[in-house]
Simulated scan of single mutants.
Amino acid sequence: MSRKTIAMELISWTKSLGIAFVLALIINIFVFEMTGVDGRSMNPTLNHGDRLFAIKTNQIFKSVPKYGDIVIVDGNINKNRTIIDEAKDSAIISTILRRKNMDFLIKRVIGVPGDTLEIRNNKLYRNGELIEEIYIFEEMITEDMSIRIPDGHVFVMGDNRNDSRDSRDIGPIPLKNVRAKVIIRLYPFNKMGKL
């Protein structure tokens, strides 16, 4: 093989790899992402080290998550997220740069726009009705509160209510900060399945 043929082959492979990388990055920014659970705030539903597959339906269709959906949110609610932020925070770029956005939280949607949420005597009420929460880790021990969820926001909480940084601390999450809906647990393999 001549040097020219080898060079042409290398250029062809480099172009193909570059196109594949750009396509993977676009899909990761706009369509889906894989992420890991860091911490205990979603116990017992999710555990530290679980690997998850999430789809970005909210970003694609501007939809409001449903009650009970497990979502990935950006807890920095005062920052106006841009496409550059999405690119920097994508799993691919984060892995390359070896950095992780510590404001990303995995939580359960408890309230949607227009809802009134109340916590009284460590029980959660939505629009005046007690919510039966079979998924929580243990009985919640927290201060009483009452909040009406504004338009364009959701209220999220961890399933491990006594060890969770969530909307009780940071406030309702703007829909633009809801990055993805968790669909499947991929790892550990013995717990693989739809959430």
Rank of each mutant, 00 (worst) to 15 (best):
M1Y: 08
A7V: 13
L10R: 09
L10W: 07
L10P: 00
I11C: 05
S12M: 05
S12Y: 08
S12P: 06
W13I: 10
T14R: 05
G18P: 10
G18M: 09
L23V: 15
L23M: 14
L25F: 07
L25K: 02
I26R: 00
I27K: 02
N28Y: 12
N28E: 13
I29M: 14
I29C: 14
I29A: 13
V31L: 15
F32K: 02
T35A: 09
G36T: 14
V37N: 01
V37I: 12
R40H: 08
S41Q: 03
M42E: 05
N43H: 08
N43E: 14
T45S: 07
T45Y: 00
L46N: 03
L46Y: 00
N47A: 14
D50V: 10
R51I: 15
L52V: 05
A54Y: 03
I55Q: 10
N58P: 02
N58G: 13
N58L: 06
Q59D: 13
S63Q: 07
S63T: 13
V64M: 05
V64F: 06
K66S: 12
G68C: 08
D74V: 07
D74T: 06
N78D: 13
K79M: 12
T82W: 00
I83G: 04
I84H: 00
T95K: 10
L97G: 02
R99A: 06
R99Q: 12
M102D: 15
L105S: 09
R108C: 04
R108F: 09
R108M: 07
I110T: 13
G111N: 12
G114H: 10
K123W: 01
K123T: 04
G128H: 04
E129P: 05
I131F: 05
I131S: 04
E133W: 03
I134V: 00
I134G: 11
I134H: 15
F137E: 11
E138V: 03
M140H: 05
M140T: 11
I141K: 14
I141M: 07
T142W: 07
E143A: 13
M145Y: 03
I147P: 10
R148L: 09
P150H: 03
P150C: 04
D151N: 13
G152Q: 02
V154D: 03
V156P: 07
M157E: 07
N162L: 11
D163R: 11
S164K: 02
R165Y: 07
R165D: 12
S167E: 14
D169R: 12
I170Q: 12
L175Y: 01
L175D: 01
K176M: 10
V178A: 09
V178K: 04
R179T: 13
R179L: 15
K181R: 13
K181W: 01
V182I: 15
V182R: 04
I184F: 11
R185T: 09
P188D: 01
F189P: 03
N190V: 04
K191S: 10
M192D: 00
G193T: 10
K194V: 15
L195D: 00
